[in-house]
């Protein structure tokens, strides 16, 4: 199944079998949020909110506080700047403060380009900044299901940083582990697609590169294979669709540096606002950007080690 179908199926299961609620704006509009929302227009479990983002996020939090399982859909992840207020200030604090869980699942959906200065890219670092909320970035259907099942069996609020590019994926996104890697790529969200595409370029160069995806951003889950690969590599780069400054990529790189003692670089959006035109857009680093960056870093490393 494609990722979108998995999300839709699990969402329907939540409504039908767990008395769950799904709230958001324009859920039943053409497209049903990229095919991720089950077509249940009359179902009371599917609630259309008004276009008031700050209030909408808070209403969803209040609904989750009632003990019902709530999925809150934010169609443009950039709008989390509005919607995050009660998610991070109430839902994320509720269990700590008052011992009352507020298990809301927030889906922040990122576009990748052509969406202008507000809604572009991802903003999961903003959510991860606050304590009390689990932050994830699944791409495949199986990864999404893994996050969903974790949420269903725990009482913490969970943020899913989604990419529209993931909706059409119909197979898992595995890791590529090379023997004696020269470089290691650690990618998050839609950057995993770019990172995977880069592998073919390195193959042409006859450079051994390992590639890992990271799904659980907070708490951060890094496999032992990933850590070992970084330890063996001359160059390691964390790639994400967010800005580099104060980002999850920086956090991951910092953690890896602590664990391995090796330098780990970060590659994300350029430090400027995105525009709508192709020239002014600011998107996830492409495979060629990643490729060139790694080659340049390898060149520097080789010069230093000569």
């Amino acid at each position: 199944m494609k990722t979108a179908e998995v999300i839709s199926t699990l969402t329907e299961e939540l409504i039908r079998n767990h008395k769950g609620l799904v709230l958001g704006q324009c859920l039943t509009a053409v497209g049903w949020v990229g095919g991720t929302v089950p077509k249940l227009p009359e179902d009371p479990g599917l609630i259309e909110l008004s276009m008031a983002d700050v209030a909408g996020g808070s209403i969803a939090v209040g609904a989750a506080l009632s003990g019902r399982r709530v999925i809150y859909i934010v169609r443009y992840q950039g709008f989390m700047w509005y919607n995050a207020a009660s998610v991070v200030n109430y839902a994320a604090k509720s269990k700590d403060m008052w011992g009352i869980p507020c298990p809301i699942l927030v889906r922040g959906i990122a576009m990748d380009g052509s969406i202008g200065p507000v809604a572009s890219g991802v903003s999961h670092a903003m959510i991860a900044r606050m304590p009390g909320i689990v932050v994830t970035a699944p791409m495949s259907g199986s990864e999404w299901e893994q996050v969903y099942n974790w949420w269903l069996n725990h009482d913490d609020p969970v943020y899913i940083s989604e990419s529209r590019r993931s909706f059409e994926l119909d197979e898992g996104m595995g890791n590529t582990i090379s023997d004696n890697p020269v470089a290691t790529l650690i990618a998050v969200g839609a950057a995993r697609i770019s990172a995977e595409e880069t592998l073919a370029l390195f193959k042409t160069d006859s450079i051994n590169v390992s590639n890992f995806g990271v799904v659980w951003l907070k708490p951060l889950a890094l496999s032992s294979e990933l850590i070992e690969s970084v330890r063996q590599s001359k160059v390691s780069v964390v790639v994400d669709s967010d800005y580099e400054s104060c980002s999850m990529a920086t956090t991951i790189a910092h953690k890896l540096q602590q664990l391995t003692g090796r330098r780990v670089d970060v590659l994300g959006l350029e430090e400027r606002s995105a525009g709508f035109s192709r020239e002014s857009d600011n998107t996830t680093p492409s495979s060629s950007t990643i490729h060139n960056y790694v080659l340049k870093r390898l060149e520097t490393e080789n010069m230093v080690n000569k």
Binding site: L21, A55, S58, V61, A63, L65, S86, N89, Y90, W98
Partner: peptide, 27 residues
């Protein structure tokens, strides 16, 4: 905050209790 009397805590974000209350009422 006191669940025994159905009084729910406040986060400190002025006014957010209003939409949160609406969400509770809705659900």
């Amino acid at each position: 905050h006191d669940p025994a009397i159905r009084m729910w805590g406040h986060s400190g974000l002025m006014g957010d209790q209003v939409p949160i209350a609406v969400g509770m009422c809705l659900a």
